[in-house]
Amino acid sequence: MIQTLKDQLKRPMRDIRISVTDQCNFRCAYCMPAELFGPDFPFLQEKELLSFEEIVRITKILATFGVEKVRLTGGEPLLRKDLPILVEQLNAIEGIKDVALTTNGVHLPKQARALAEAGLKRVNISLDTLDEELFKKINGRGVGVKPILKGIQAAIDAGLEVKINMVVKKGLNDQHIVPMTKYFKELGVQLRFIEFMDVGTSNGWKFDYVVTKKEIFDILSQHFELEPVKPTYFGEVAKRYRHKGTDAQIGFITSVSEAFCSSCTRARLSADGKFYNCLFATEGSSLKDVIREGASDEYLTYMIKRIWEKRADRYSEERTEESAKQRKKIEMSYIGG
């Protein structure tokens, strides 16, 4: 069954990003600006979220399409109660080889070990600067850097593979590229530079704010000797480099300057159960609704296959500043990173 469905797809589906909540303890300028996501913002109620049972059911079906990797996102996924239970259930699914998590890291000191024991393998932790005041400004909640660094260390101590995600925005934190690289090189943790993207419609994106991979690489080349690392699989998003003579790596996510739409193998599932083919999608198809109406696994399989096979998303390749303004896209906090 798994091999048959996998072979039927024109484009492989390798991993699924599952948002388990749209809520977050930050109001980050990149995806949840405080002026829009204030205390009265109507986040999803618990009954509107996919249950763990529903998430596991959908993931079992996706595994028959060849999905091997699951990444849990948000909002902030560690705000979802009993998350280690979901991790354990996902790890038990035939065909799933890797369950990971994207987080701001604040709650990792309390949860990292339980997540690792449940089978979590990796965490991507968002940190855009080591500067205390700037980081407080970026996260919108006055949270300093120390809680994130404690979360990083807790993940390392729990045996989790750790990657750091740094969104680089011109005029905001681009001067911190080198200090961040030095710090995480010494720590032996991969730092990934993410070009500032126009995810959603609320982060004030402009081309002028983008610091491209080439620009970042040119800055780094003045301070470090870097050598390219070969991709480990088709559709690998990060372009990776190694600090020469070490195992320490950096990566680049280049969805603005070097789009990778043609090799994308990711699908996305929102916290309220909508299936999306693209991070920059305008709308999704509700799997939750058909599940709660009593749909069979056979119908869900048919529905997912039809959506995936009609995939024609090339937004990053076709983006212009004008099209970015006109297109109303799903917010990052809703669909996950």
Rank of each mutant, 00 (worst) to 15 (best):
Leu62His: 02
Ile216Leu: 10
Arg113Asn: 09
Asp174Glu: 15
Ile330Trp: 06
Ala34Leu: 13
Lys110Cys: 01
Asp15Asn: 08
Met13His: 00
Leu86His: 11
Glu132Lys: 09
Thr201Arg: 06
Ala271Leu: 10
Asn91Gly: 13
Lys47Cys: 03
Tyr276Arg: 11
Val290His: 04
Glu317Phe: 09
Ile85Leu: 15
Arg240His: 11
Ala312Arg: 04
Gly159Trp: 13
Leu78Arg: 00
Thr64His: 08
Pro77Ala: 11
Leu72Phe: 12
Leu130Arg: 07
His243Pro: 00
Arg80Thr: 10
Leu9Trp: 13
Leu83Ser: 01
Ala281Arg: 09
Glu225Tyr: 08
Lys169Leu: 04
Lys10Ser: 11
Asn25Glu: 13
Glu225Gln: 12
Ala267Ser: 14
Phe41Ala: 06
Arg122Gln: 13
His223Thr: 13
Gln175Gly: 06
Leu90His: 07
Val168His: 07
Ser221Asp: 04
Ala324Gln: 05
Gly144Tyr: 08
Ala112Tyr: 07
Met13Ser: 00
Phe41Glu: 02
Ile138Gln: 12
Gly75Cys: 08
Gly144Asp: 11
Ala29Trp: 07
Glu215Asn: 09
Phe52Trp: 05
Asp82Ile: 00
Lys47Asp: 15
Glu317Ala: 14
Tyr183Gly: 02
Ser333Leu: 10
Gln111Tyr: 13
Ile216Val: 15
Asn173Asp: 10
Ala118Asn: 04
Leu134Asp: 03
Asp82Met: 01
Pro109Gly: 09
Glu227Asp: 11
Lys310Trp: 03
Gly159Val: 12
Ser316Lys: 10
Ile307Pro: 06
Ile85Trp: 07
Ala29Asp: 03
Arg71Lys: 15
Thr201Leu: 01
Asp131His: 14
Gln45Ser: 12
His243Cys: 03
Asn139His: 10
Val99Pro: 11
Ser285Ile: 15
Glu309Ser: 15
Leu130His: 13
Gln111Val: 03
Glu76Thr: 12
Arg242Thr: 02
Gln153Cys: 02
Lys121Ile: 09
Glu225Gly: 02
Asp208Pro: 06
Leu78Phe: 03
Val56Leu: 01
Asn165Arg: 08
Tyr209Cys: 02
Cys264Ile: 10
Asp297Met: 06
Ile291Leu: 14
Arg327Gly: 01
Asn25Arg: 11
Ile330Gly: 05
Ile148Gln: 11
Lys328Gly: 04
Gln45Trp: 06
Leu79Phe: 00
Glu322Leu: 12
Leu130Ala: 09
Lys146Phe: 06
Lys47Ile: 10
Gly171Ser: 07
Asp22Ala: 07
Lys136Met: 09
Pro147Leu: 04
Trp205Tyr: 05
Ser323Val: 01
Ile194Asp: 14
Val56Cys: 03
Lys137Tyr: 02
Tyr233Ala: 11
Lys213Gly: 07
Ile61Cys: 12
Val168Pro: 13
Arg141Leu: 05
Glu293Trp: 07
Asp128Ala: 11
Ser51Cys: 06
Arg14Ala: 09
Arg242Asp: 02
Arg113Met: 14
Gln249Val: 09
Ile125Thr: 03
Asn277Ile: 14
Leu149Ile: 05
Ser316Met: 15
Glu132Gly: 09
Met166Tyr: 03
Asp198Glu: 12
Trp308Arg: 01
Asp7Tyr: 06
Val178Ser: 10
Lys325Met: 09
Leu120Gly: 07
Leu108His: 04
Leu79Ile: 04
His176Glu: 15
Asp22Thr: 09
Thr301Gly: 05
Val123Leu: 01
